[in-house]
Design a protein around this nucleic acid. Structure first.
Lengths: 212, 212, 212, 212
DNA sequence: AGCTAATCGAGACGGTACGTCACGTCTTTAG
DNA sequence: CTAAAGACGTGACGTACCGTCTCGATTAGCT
């Protein structure tokens, strides 16, 4: 039906999967993405190379899954910490003050982008995704888009509350905030600061305000 | 002073330099950046590998210079074509209508991003620069920043003309336009269209408008 | 215990080993030892370079093993041809006439030295062994010494038969025969002929004769 | 007349020639023949590569000339030291006692072979000459043969004095002495000692003695 | 509980490209 | 006008990983 050789996922060794993720993340953070090799991951994980090739098509795919897994576990932990069993940790708060809410999230994003343990793998994945459409799609779908949806929902809520012009496409609105941030982050043109995040929110919100 | 062995640039073979650029650009456009190798470039250029390693530190650096050289020659040609010996080909027009001028440039940028002959190498260089800070700096400095300066100048002119709030940092203003465009381009979240460019300009300009 | 990474010999591909030997011998006889490269051997054998580097430390070592293998197979064939399952093909005959027996062997050796298919690789190996002690030891041990032992045994037999002074060290005796031959062979001072072999035997035997 | 490009020997720089010899000998003794390169010699001698290529066809040829020059200067010095302005330093003495004279010379030869400063370059040249007939001829003619002639002359003298069978070819006689020595030297089968030299002389002389 | 079939760790294999080294030729530049 | 300096095309070096391919030795999941 599908490919000539579909491995039987039910027989898969969870032990190896974990070890591969751990090894991949460790190696990327220690030696950088470019110097990380599948052979190295396998050796570090105490795993045969074939076990990696059986389940992933590329180094980037391994790292993406490893990162996703890390994020999922972090979320899990966060959810357990929070009393309310919310769906995800990153939902944008809605205090009624749109500007404040957005600044809060953008500042947090800026902090992440300045944190090497987040920056290194994400940057590597983004770069790989830019060049490899297949992986880029997975990256966007699994990492980027969910985050953007939080913005979309908050902006829709703001439109309902009359804080944002209802005629504006929330998608474009969100890109007005996130685009410049990513631009500075990826191209390293200028430092990413909380002040910058705030200015961005202020300026964007003036564009999104309901027409007089 | 510098490295232990600095080759004598005055003895450099212009012939080889040209051949390497041509080969690099041809190979990238034919087979893609990832499949392009230094060995392949050398072979195609009829040049020894050492001649590449002598002058460039990496494949990406070769391609960056090749691309820069291409752009420079294109500019040269454009300038000769235009009667007015203007400074560069990409200066943003100033018709007095800021929105129209920006839409014109953003549409042109969108077109470039949709043109594979521009898209492929630029995307590859951007991705490489994201991961390699050294190269990223060169990429930003040589390719990205000059372009951004055009926006900065046009926005400053608009501020002088009273079309843009003088209190706004032109740098942030320009990122409001370029950031979202790059976001869609690099992450391939949604199609890049003229309509999108227009919306972007309209929305951003509302944010930049002088306060009532 | 030994090197940091010892390949697992039990998993070794006999197919590749054979192909490498064949390619090495073919290339040496076709283009000469100096022009034979490891890369060339690998290509001709349809084998990865690493497969050669995994098992041999140098081009000379490959050729030595190839030559040894060839000799072993030749011996095998010779033994099968001879009705009597003798030990090796090169054992010196013992007809009771020492001079005749030695002349027979030395003439055969002269013939080998004059035969390009034997001369070329042996000469190359000898030269390499002269300069590389490691390889020289292997060459001596595996190719030269076994042959010398045949002489030693024949001379000891002659001593027992009273044809050679029992006070003479067989080792020196044998070198009296083989040394001059190799001298002419390696240094190409004068032609190697059967007549020369005969003279050598006569002269040496006069020195080895039992004292009156 | 001769080759397409015959360099004008009269214009040759003696300074460079000396520097090249010195550099070649120094490098060979420091790092070994195999690791010595023409590029290295040129650099060490402060000489352009072309200056070497103009006058010598190969690394081995340079070293041969360097060694010859060294030997010539050593002889010159020795001659000046000795009162009698003899032709060369290595002429075999004739005390009337052939065995003693030969032992003296063979012991001296053994000592040379055990002396690394002599052993290393000679061994390298011999090995190269074994494989490269052109160079081998030059090596034999310039280094080996003159030495052998000393033996030939001493043996002829001994024949005249009635100490050696006049029917024996001096050439073969000399090879009986020198061959075994070279055999042990080049193949490193057994240690080269004075005792060995003495045994060799004794044994060979029994073969050469006049017939009863 | 035993059988069977897949996955597992391991690593040899044919390859490709790497970045380096030296070759021998050719050109440029300083004395 | 010579020779040092060294860039050039060439080609082999020895290494690193690629992705595929056997190997036993576990492990499941199904009789």
């Amino acid at each position: 039906m599908s490919d000539t050789k579909a491995p039987d996922a039910s027989r898969r060794s969870e032990r190896s999967r974990r070890a591969i993720f751990d090894a991949a993340l460790a190696l990327v953070s220690e030696t950088g993405y470019a110097k990380t090799t599948i052979e190295g991951i396998a050796a570090r994980a105490g795993v045969g190379k074939q076990t990696i090739y059986r389940w992933w098509p590329s180094k980037a795919a391994v790292l993406l899954d490893a990162f996703l897994d890390l994020a999922a576990r972090a979320n899990e932990a966060a959810r357990r910490a929070d009393a309310h069993g919310g769906e995800g940790a990153a939902e944008i708060p809605d205090t009624g003050d749109l500007a404040a809410d957005l600044k809060y999230v953008l500042r947090a994003t800026v902090d992440e982008m300045n944190d090497p343990t987040f920056d290194a793998p994400t940057r590597a994945l983004a770069a790989e995704g830019i060049v490899d459409p297949e992986l880029g799609a997975r990256f966007t779908e699994a990492l980027l888009e969910p985050q953007l949806q939080y913005y979309a929902r908050r902006i829709e809520a703001a439109q309902a509350a009359g804080d944002v012009d209802p005629g504006v496409d929330p998608r474009i609105a969100l890109e007005l905030l996130v685009g410049p941030l990513h631009h500075r982050w990826l191209h390293r043109t200028l430092p990413l600061t909380h002040a910058y995040a705030d200015s961005l929110v202020d300026l964007a919100l003036r564009g999104l305000a309901p027409r007089a």
